[in-house]
Amino acid sequence: MEIKINGIKKKYGKKEVLKGVSLSVPSGKCVGILGGNGCGKSTLLSILAGIQPADGGEFLCNGKNLLASSKERSKLVGYIPQGTPLIDELTARDNLSLWYTKEAMEKELRDGVLKMLGVDEFLNVAVSKMSGGMKKRLSIGCAVASKPPILLLDEAMAALDIACKQKIFTYIKGHVANGGTVLLVTHDVMELELCDEWYIIKDGVATPFKYEGDTELLIRSF
């Protein structure tokens, strides 16, 4: 599902963080968003997810501006935040019940995304007793419950071990292969290699960047 982001603006007080960010993500592609700390990467994603309002611009999908339609947006967009959107006192199953119906959960645990992420292995474990990797896999499982075609990942794999990352990479690759769109904010080199295209946000605007493994060049571009 192709998306177009046109002229997104955002101001905090007098400080203009985003001065008109524009980029497009073709269907079936994973785009990496990079930039220095405080450049507005997370702000962009939170605007696209509907958490914060934009001061201007459009978020187009199939010709519709998703910024103006929260109902459409919540159906089409899956947002995976940096933290763990889970309730610590409850088990994985309880947390999943917030996002899945009973039947849908069973189906996904059997042979769907929850099975792929390995959530079935710790279904009855309380979140407070889970490792970071388990929490993150569960978080992703919760965020994609409505099978959104557009995924926004805001440093979702930070501080995860390689084995855990591989599971999530497998999921993302599968999502992209099925025509889904992924917008990935990251600082991680492994995650950069997962992406098909890259943009750097600097001085409030997004500039395309060709990443070919040269991290020195990447750093200089910030």
Binding site: S46, A49, G50, I51, S70, K71, R73, S74, V77, Y79, P81, Q82, G83, T84, P85, L86, I87, S139, C142, A143, S146
Partner: peptide, 12 residues
Amino acid sequence: DDSLNRLLLSKG
């Protein structure tokens, strides 16, 4: 961690 609040908000 307000991630859950943000995720709920993103879902309307």
